[in-house]
Design a protein around this nucleic acid. Structure first.
Lengths: 326, 326
DNA sequence: GTGAAAGCGCTAACAC
DNA sequence: GTGTTAGCGCTTTCAC
């Protein structure tokens, strides 16, 4: 069933059917005829032919490191809602945290496989930047900030600083468990926020009080152990993610430390887990789903208006004070 | 940059370039020339034109109820891996648990928008079945069983039965908190498994010992409260999902019941949360990511071999005995 | 308002 | 092995 058959059955030319489907510049009488035929046949225009002809795919590529992650899947939920509402479809590219895969998809998408890209980035290598520059379709970066590109990101610096200040209200010796600073947002941004708060309070953090974990509960457990062995007098610990904090908490409970009396803890991210551990975790809520919606809106806006001006949107946050702090 | 320009630059016809790109039936000499031109120009064939010409999109539509859910996102991770490995791309359709949206996407995909569909289903209405029958592209159903269709599903019945048996080892009065039986898998299947175990043990479960919750922690909390008020002597509770069990647990802890001494609990799903609550939750592990991989493999197999025979794959499970049972 | 005709970029007969 | 040619299904001038 194609447009020619519909035209024949309706007794009009295929151009008229096309007009009916698009601008609607058709007499009422023929409109009605065509409508009826389409309804009877269940005709759907071939999106492939439309794509070829119009050079628009109405597809948005979403490149992300890991779909089965709480934060990422929330972002995708937001992206998906906005795209659907605007008549775009979502092409999902899961890179499994591999830089090579990221580059592969960026390269695949960059020449009009899709109309636009939402890139949930982790780190930017020079190869990333090169490919991004070569991109012939608009890109919005989500979760990271990159100069010269439209992006939606979280205020890691201030979130981290505020939550550290909370620790400092009742803390003397503060430990830090971060993640790799190659990650500008969760790594570098949160570390700087932590340091800013410490400096302002006139407190110091020697290198042995600082550890670098992976993004996992297990790693949080390990690093907490190492940190406490190196600096037994620690009475407060900043963890760059909730998962790390939860791992740290489980180690502390295991060795009989009471939280927050002996040691207080904070995380960042406000994951479901953090609400359920005992004591519940003091953390920062980031609006992940909302940021996904914002990024998608930004992209749709660029797509619909051919605007080229870059926007940078820093999302707010909320400190969630629970029972893991004194 | 299109195939004509590449042909001109390489000094061959565009058919030869096409052969180079596809079957490779080209002399070494010309191969080399074409290779060089493609490398220099960074040419990528237009996938839209290929789709139109070949009637293959190399796209698989994945229809799912909610992407930001632990089980679904794990399935998608598995699907995504297998599709990528086989050169397919993943078109994500998030229905937000709306039947209308499900039908919309099924309708959208059914006439060759995509080469195949993975449908992570919840419930099947007659309209679902009608649309599925009209589908001109292969469909694999994931997470539910539907006669006459290829599907990959979890053994809810036996999982539920086994975990109930575990409760019955040390339990007398067993409560049940399920979910809607419109959901054949998590609702009906698990309920039947529970009842089978009860019957076999010569135990009975009166209506007031059975509740129906939504898929949320909050709902588990509510239903546990109602159940305990209706039947105070309950000493064991079967919960159809981990989240429900976690909600139930938080209510029980709140009113000072000790788990598992006063009341023992089981869930199903082995979610990350269940490992972290205190006491850790006895549950059943389903291989969600693996089932996603299996479903995608099944679909790819159908796509590559034009086979039409339906397969039904029931995935195994593992009972995870933790500390919420006596 | 409507139809004829061109052509998007590619693949697949077919002829050589 | 290679080139010529037709045509996938649609949209978009252009002329009427």
């Amino acid at each position: 069933m194609n447009i020619n058959e519909i035209a024949k059955l309706s007794g009009v030319s295929r151009a008229t059917v096309s007009r009916y489907l698009n601008d609607g510049y058709v007499s009422e009488e023929k409109k009605e005829k065509i409508r009826k035929v389409i309804e009877e046949t269940g005709y759907q225009p071939s999106s492939q032919a439309q794509m070829l002809r119009t050079k628009k795919t109405r597809l948005v590529g979403v490149i992300l490191p890991k779909i089965n992650s709480d934060t990422v899947s929330r972002m995708v939920a937001g992206i998906s809602d906005v795209l659907a509402k605007n008549g775009y479809q979502l092409l999902l590219a899961n890179t499994n945290n591999s830089v090579e895969e990221e580059l592969k998809y960026l390269n695949l998408f960059k020449d009009n496989q899709v109309d636009g890209i939402v890139f949930i980035a982790t780190i930017f290598t020079t190869r990333h930047k090169k490919l991004l520059k070569e991109c012939r379709v608009p890109v919005v970066i989500l979760g990271q900030h990159l100069d010269g590109y439209s992006c939606v990101y979280h205020d890691d610096f201030h979130a981290s600083r505020e939550v550290t200040q909370l620790l400092l209200e009742k803390g003397r010796t503060v430990g830090f468990i971060g993640v790799t600073t190659k990650d500008e947002a969760a790594g570098l941004g949160r570390k700087k926020g932590f340091e800013a708060a410490m400096k302002k309070a006139g407190n110091t953090c020697r290198p042995e009080q600082m550890a670098e974990a992976k993004f996992s509960i297990e790693s949080g457990y390990e690093k907490m152990k190492e940190l406490l062995e190196a600096v037994p007098q620690v009475d407060s610990v900043f963890c760059a993610t909730d998962n790390i904090a939860i791992g740290a908490m489980s180690y502390l409970k295991e060795i009989g430390k009471s939280i927050p009396q002996d040691i207080q803890l904070v995380g960042i991210g406000d994951t479901p887990l953090g609400k359920l551990v005992t004591p519940s975790l003091t953390t920062v809520h980031f609006y992940y789903k909302t940021s996904g919606m914002e990024a998608a809106s930004m992209l749709v806006d660029i797509l619909e208006t051919d605007r080229t001006v870059n926007k940078e949107l820093k999302m707010g946050f909320e400190v969630i004070r629970k029972n893991s702090t004194r």
